[in-house]
Simulated assay, not measured.
Amino acid sequence: MPRSLTQHLPLSRYRIDRDHAARDRPQLFDELAADPDARIVALWRGEVLLTTARDAATAPALALLPWASAPAEALRIYLGRTLEAEGGVPAGAAITAVVLDDESGPALEADVTRWASPRTLGHRLGDRDAGLAIEALGLANWHDTHRFSPRTGNPTVAAKAGWVRVDVETGAELFPRTDAAVIVGITDADDRLVLGSNALWESNRFSLLAGFVEPGESLEAAVVREVFEESGLRVIDAEYVGSQPWPFPASLMLGFRARLDPAHANDLRPDGAEILDLRWFSRDELAASLGEILLPGRTSIARAIIEDWFGGSLDAP
């Protein structure tokens, strides 16, 4: 069985007790408003507030602010309690995400260099802060896309500490959802890795092939289908290697390795819609190409799978 990469993935780290039972307490937010140890994580436009301005030389940290720092009417989502003391926040402190609008965000902090996206900065955050940022962003994105019930079209309101939305007319409860997506490191008989360039990226950015799992489909079947659709390659022996949340906006990335099926011709055939270019790389070829091509960012599971195949860290941003 292949070793799991999950524990090494930047956005899979977590050092918080989600304290799920507290979500059912109707007066939870009133209790936290009176708790001097309670803290908030501020979100604005998909970014989190840091303690200081972004600095390439200094490890970033979330600004965990007093409860009253944000407007009372802002959407609040209970994230859980800290497991140990860190950065001036005691163990057991309750942490709540607060989603700010275009008026309250700049009012809280006008310095845009203190707001940052976990997508690009997540690998530099500590274990506690990485987990808090990803939990907060995933739930905030879900709230933003479920202001109306998909069943009735009626408005919905947040309930149960931000973990449920309720249809205001029918009372039906809606719960957070995550979209499953597979991402695959494909190798051939010579142990070369195939990388593709997506139509939405810069022309010289290359990554692994990936796609969403369809209804009624196993993860392994999704690997085979997505790879063939995007590249014309037939693969076998799909093996799970780890998972990472990717709330940009609402995915769970399920990492796999797979081998080229020797029973097929397997000519590279980019689909022309999502994938515009495909290339095979040996380890030496990939290392020699780093000045020419861009790799996925260090926060992504794609980068982890590529470097695991490569056998070490690649000298690229």
Rank of each mutant, 00 (worst) to 15 (best):
E109Y: 10
D111Y: 15
D111E: 15
V112D: 15
V112S: 15
T113V: 01
T113M: 10
W115A: 05
A116H: 00
A116F: 07
S117K: 04
S117W: 06
S117R: 06
L121M: 07
R124Y: 05
L125Q: 13
D127G: 07
D127N: 09
A130F: 11
A130K: 11
G131K: 07
A133E: 04
I134S: 09
I134P: 02
E135I: 03
A136M: 11
G138K: 03
G138E: 05
G138W: 06
A140R: 01
N141V: 12
N141E: 13
W142E: 10
H143G: 03
H143P: 02
H143C: 01
H143T: 03
T145L: 11
H146V: 01
F148S: 12
S149R: 03
R151C: 03
R151L: 09
T152K: 04
G153H: 06
N154E: 14
N154F: 08
T156G: 00
T156E: 00
T156L: 05
V157L: 14
V157Y: 13
A158M: 12
K160N: 08
A161N: 07
W163G: 00
R165Q: 13
V166M: 04
D167Y: 01
D167P: 00
V168T: 08
T170L: 10
G171S: 09
A172F: 01
A172I: 00
A172C: 03
R177A: 12
T178G: 10
A181I: 06
V182D: 03
I183P: 01
G185R: 14
D188Y: 04
